[in-house]
Write a protein that binds this DNA or RNA. Sequence first.
DNA 1: ATCCGATAACTCGATATCAAGATACTTGAC
DNA 2: GTCAAGTATCTTGATATCGAGTTATCGGAT
Lengths: 165, 165
Amino acid sequence: MEDEVDRLVAAWRRERPDLDVEPLEVLSRVSRLARHLDRARRLAFSEHGLEPWEFDVLTALRRAGTPYQLSPGQLLTQTLVTSGTMTNRIDRLAKKGLVERLPDPSDRRGVLVRLTDEGRDRADQALAGLLEQERAILAELSHAQRSELAALLRQLTAPFDNVPG
Amino acid sequence: MEDEVDRLVAAWRRERPDLDVEPLEVLSRVSRLARHLDRARRLAFSEHGLEPWEFDVLTALRRAGTPYQLSPGQLLTQTLVTSGTMTNRIDRLAKKGLVERLPDPSDRRGVLVRLTDEGRDRADQALAGLLEQERAILAELSHAQRSELAALLRQLTAPFDNVPG
DNA sequence: ATCCGATAACTCGATATCAAGATACTTGAC
DNA sequence: GTCAAGTATCTTGATATCGAGTTATCGGAT
C-alpha cells in the first residue's frame, strides 16, 4: 500500500530529477511515523490522566528499579530533552505528587529524583495500555519482520546513542 | 552494537518480567531516532537560516510544482500539525517574505499559499544540505538494507496515512 | 429556494520547549 | 592547598505548539 512518503518522493523526482532523494524513503518515514505515534500515545495516555512527557520521565524512573531514583542528568540522556526542560518537568511532576526531589548525598551539586508510590502505579498502568496499543500497530508485521526492523533501526540509532553528542 | 533501547528493554525485562515488551524494540527506536534526526536537522538548517518547521512548509510547496501553491488544508496533511499551528506558520513565513497568501478563486472560504522566489531558493538550498546529511547517517546500511527498511516502515505508516484520522 | 450538517481557515489562552547563561560544586594539575 | 577547567542543575526570555471554539462559506437534500 502507498503512503504519504511515496507521494512525497514521487513529487521530488518530478520536480528535482537532478537530485537523489533516496534517503527520504527511510528517514522521512521515521519522522512521520514518530509523529503519528505521538498522537496515538497522547490519546492512550489521556485515559490514565498522563501526558507523553510525564510517561517518559516516570517510566525511566520505574525502569531504574527500587528505590526508583535517578539524577536529572541520567533522565536527560534517556529522554533527549534539554536540561531546562527537565528541570521544568521535574517541578511539575513534583507538584502533582508523582516524584520528589532529594539531595544527592555524594555530590552537593546533584539531585536525585525519586518516584512516589502513586507515580509508580500510574507508570505501570500507562505502560500496560501503551503496549496494548503498540501491539495493535505492529500487527501489520510478522514476528520475523519486526525483528528485522528492530535490527535495522538499531544500526541507525546506535551511533547517536554511543557518542558524546 | 548496543543502543539505548537495548538497555531500556533489558531494564523492563528485569523490572516487569510479566510483561511482553517486544513492541518497544521497534517503536521506541522509531521515536528516539526521530528525536535525534530533529536535532541533527535543526543544526543543518541553521546554516541556511531556516527552522525545521519552515523547511517542512516551504518544501511541501516546492514539491507541488509551479505555481508552487497549496491550500492550508493540504499543508496540514503533509506536515501533521493542527490548523491553528499552520495559520501561525503561514503568518510568520509571510512576514519573512518566503510565502504569500492569495484568495482561492473557486472557494471563498479558502486560501492559497504561494512560495515566493526567495522561498523557493531557500527550500532548494536547504534540501541539498539535508540530503547530504541524511546520506551520511544512512551510510551505516547497504542499499539493500535501506530498501528493506523503507518497505517495512511503509507497512506501518500506510494505515495512518490512508485513514481519515 | 432554503435549510442544515460539513468544511476551511482563523483566534485565543494555556503550556511545553529550547538556547543561552548563571550558580554552585567538584576534580585534577601543579 | 590553590586554581582553573569541568560538571550538574537551575533560571530566564522568546517562541512554537496544541485544543477548543468561532466565523464564513459550501453543497446536498428536500
